[in-house]
Amino acid sequence: MNARDRAAEVARQVRDPEMPMLTLADLGVLRDVELDGGGEVVVSITPTYTGCPAMATMRDDLVHRLREAGFDRVEVRIVLDPPWSSDWISERGRAALREAGLSAPGPAPRRTGPIPLTLGPARSAPPCPRCGSAATRLTSEFGATACKALYRCTGCQEPFEHVKEI
């Protein structure tokens, strides 16, 4: 394995600080790992939400892990375009979310033109990740982190978090 691939492999193992069942690669936040001519590792990451407060922690974790692996010089860059989409969460990531009792996002809405106002339930409610019941109800479009909504299952009565489609 060459140095670039080795650096990429280290970066891919770094976990998301807020949803540690996912690696940054599974979450789709890790966009690129390059080795420049001078031996510096350049890692590109993108925020899930603009205000994501975990970006600094992700940066620090990436730098720390890569240094541990022998890459002394690491630069972490932000990529804003194209914006992160929940569609970028890998199959492995979706399975890890379900395993942890979270509901994985459905397909992100694809829109052209003005975005229609939604005054009713925004989308069909996801099934309960615990009992599988389809009888679930939205509690709030906003949850403990920017990327999650809160639901409640009326079958097993348990609340659960759903990673939002964006």
């Binding site: 600094a56 922690t57 940066r59 972490v76 932000i78």
Partner: peptide, 15 residues
């Protein structure tokens, strides 16, 4: 792991 507050000085780092 607790390096909060040393965060991205520039939210456009590398842009």
């Amino acid at each position: 792991q607790w390096a909060f507050g040393t965060g991205f000085e520039d939210p456009l780092a590398g842009v």
